[in-house]
């Protein structure tokens, strides 16, 4: 008897993970038309009413990058050893980071933001957590591909597109989890910007991993974003990467697929009443 329960638990977790893996893709396929409309509107809506219009879509991340570049390269005169120029290293990690932080931040409030669509109508709610990631991906991928193409050649542009697509898939469980948590745990929205800032500082984006003091380097092992950035730097610039850099985020992704999907699914009937 004692051996059956863990097996059952394991098989239930396996089923949850499978559902969490296929679920978002099924939603993508089934509601592609609706998602297309929402993403299009989301992108247009971000810059509507401005003089420069869609130019801001490119200018906003570019200006953020310029601000950090100014601080690190001109003010702090940060120099890194090795064959890759600091600006190349920095841009390779910073643009995906902007995509990640933008997506996760918006996921927290996406159910409230679009409540007018589903409060009194039949609406496929599982579409909404995918929206910030998709529109973010559409905005950042061309910029990233163009930047990487300029820095490391046309091959890097193709790699950049693949990496951003992979990142979108990697973020999916986090999107569902944050969407449902943001709906019910309002305090999270207040604390999240701080969390994102800490994540940025603890991820080797503004510095190389080797520049961290020894006692902090172990933190990189428990920070999946550090692994993701290591993979990005490795693909684009050929910097060293370990198997752990692949395994840790993939494992975390696999483990979070099921719980995130199931939590959203169970919370779904209460979302309309909560908002």
């Amino acid at each position: 008897m004692s051996g059956v329960a863990p097996i059952q638990r394991f098989s239930r977790f396996g089923a949850m993970t499978w559902a969490g893996l296929l679920g978002p893709f099924r939603v993508l396929a089934r509601e592609r038309q609706l998602l297309g409309l929402l993403v299009r509107r989301d992108i247009i809506g971000r810059t509507r009413g401005t003089v420069l219009g869609w130019v801001w879509m490119l200018a906003q991340p570019a200006l953020q990058v310029v601000a950090f570049w100014f601080l690190l390269d001109f003010v702090l005169r940060l120099r890194v050893p090795g064959k890759v120029a600091f600006i190349d290293y920095f841009l390779t990690a910073m643009l995906p980071w902007l995509f990640i932080s933008d997506t996760l931040n918006r996921c927290l409030s996406v159910l409230t933001e679009f409540s007018s669509l589903y409060k009194r109508t039949v609406f496929p709610l599982k579409v909404l957590p995918l929206l910030p990631g998709l529109s973010g991906c559409l905005v950042y991928t061309p910029i990233y591909a163009a930047t990487m193409g300029l820095l490391a050649g046309p091959g890097a542009a193709v790699q950049a597109v693949l990496l951003m697509t992979g990142l979108l898939v990697l973020l999916m469980p986090a999107c569902y989890l944050l969407a449902v948590l943001g709906c019910f745990v309002k305090d999270l929205r207040q604390a999240f910007p701080f969390t994102l800032n800490m994540l940025l500082y603890l991820t080797p984006i503004l510095y190389l991993p080797e520049m961290l003091p020894q006692e902090f380097r172990e933190l990189l092992v428990v920070n999946p974003l550090a692994d993701v950035m290591a993979v990005f730097e490795s693909w684009i610039h050929g910097l060293p990467v370990t198997a752990g850099n692949f395994i840790r985020p993939l494992l975390l992704w696999l483990l979070s697929l099921g719980p995130a999907w199931v939590l959203f699914h169970r919370g779904e009937p209460h979302i309309r009443e909560a908002v």
Binding site: R41, G45, R48, F114, S116, L117, K119, R120, T121, F123
Partner: peptide, 13 residues
């Protein structure tokens, strides 16, 4: 179903 004025519309669209 038509349950409420403007339900299901996105005001910015």
């Amino acid at each position: 179903a038509l349950l409420e004025l403007g339900a299901g519309f996105h005001p910015d669209m």
